[in-house]
Simulated assay, not measured.
Amino acid sequence: MGTPPTRLSKEARREQLLDAALTIVRTRGADELTLPTLAEVARVSRPIVYDHFATRAGLLLALYLRLDEQYRDRLAQALRDAEPAASRVARVMSEAYFTCATDLPEFTAVSAALKGSPALEATQRDMVEHYATLMATALRPHSGLDGEALRLRCVGVLGAAEAVAAELNRGRATAEDAVAALTDLILGTLRH
């Protein structure tokens, strides 16, 4: 007979379950992430998993949000550490964007598993707004544009970044080419 699971606070248990979910995605792929599989890997009962996430989509969305938070934290730290020159800020943003794809491949897998989910679409709209605001705030000292004009240009850059990432994923660009292209696009937003 095995050792009974350790009693954790609800939040600590949720984090433990998300850690296990991430392990499943890394080792088996997002298609293998189900609530019963998570219960088995985390060594908890199914009702515990269902209490935290209710559905597979709820679990995937929670994991997606966690990965996004990790990316946002890395980007915010990189921007705090960046030299204050516009070219450096733009380069840091570009490197962070493409490093996310490299360092957090699970993000893409979880996103693909959620494709078509209304909850994901709403979350992605919120994320674009957040990233556009973050970018505009970092670029504002280097631009004469008003806040809304700069934010809207950042939204456009994020769309372009997604297209460049698709080229990178298809092997039609190198990581350095992708970073250089996105850096130039970001710097282009600063012009009137």
Rank of each mutant, 00 (worst) to 15 (best):
R88G: 11
A78I: 09
T55I: 11
R80E: 14
A76Q: 14
Q70D: 13
L79P: 09
D81N: 14
D81P: 00
E83I: 12
R74I: 10
R91D: 04
L63H: 02
L79E: 11
A82Q: 03
R91I: 06
R91H: 13
D81S: 04
A82H: 15
L65G: 09
D81G: 10
D73T: 13
R72A: 15
D68M: 13
L63D: 06
A86M: 06
Y71G: 07
P84M: 10
R91Q: 15
H52S: 04
A86L: 08
G58P: 06
E83H: 14
Y71N: 07
L75G: 10
E83G: 09
S87R: 11
R74T: 07
A54Q: 06
Q70I: 08
L59C: 01
Q77S: 15
L67W: 05
A76V: 11
E69R: 08
A54S: 06
D51S: 08
A82G: 14
P84C: 03
R72Q: 14
R66W: 04
T55V: 07
Y64T: 08
Q77L: 13
Q70S: 09
A62K: 05
Y64K: 03
R56M: 03
A85S: 15
T55F: 03
P84E: 05
A82I: 00
D73L: 14
R88K: 10
A76R: 11
D51N: 05
H52N: 04
L65I: 00
A54G: 08
A78H: 02
A57H: 15
R66T: 05
L79I: 09
R74N: 13
Q77P: 02
T55C: 05
A86F: 05
A57C: 14
T55L: 11
A76N: 09
T55Q: 01
R66A: 05
L63V: 01
L65N: 01
R88A: 08
Q70N: 15
L75N: 09
S87Q: 09
A57P: 06
S87D: 12
Q70K: 10
Y64H: 05
R56H: 05
A78C: 02
R80I: 08
Y71L: 14
A78N: 03
A62I: 08
L63E: 05
E83R: 10
L75R: 04
A57T: 15
L61T: 03
R91Y: 08
T55M: 15
D68L: 12
V89F: 10
D51C: 07
L67H: 03
D51L: 09
R88E: 15
R66P: 01
V89M: 08
L61K: 00
L67K: 03
L67G: 04
R91T: 07
L59M: 13
Y64A: 03
F53T: 00
A76L: 12
G58C: 14
F53W: 00
R56V: 01
P84D: 06
A62G: 06
A62Y: 01
L61V: 01
P84R: 10
A82M: 05
R74L: 07
P84S: 04
D73K: 15
E69T: 09
S87V: 14
V89I: 15
Y64V: 08
L75T: 15
R66L: 03
G58F: 02
R88Q: 11
A76C: 10
Q77M: 12
R72D: 13
D68T: 13
Y71R: 13
Y71C: 11
F53G: 00
Q77E: 07
L67V: 10
T55N: 00
A57I: 12
E83F: 12
E69S: 05
L65K: 01
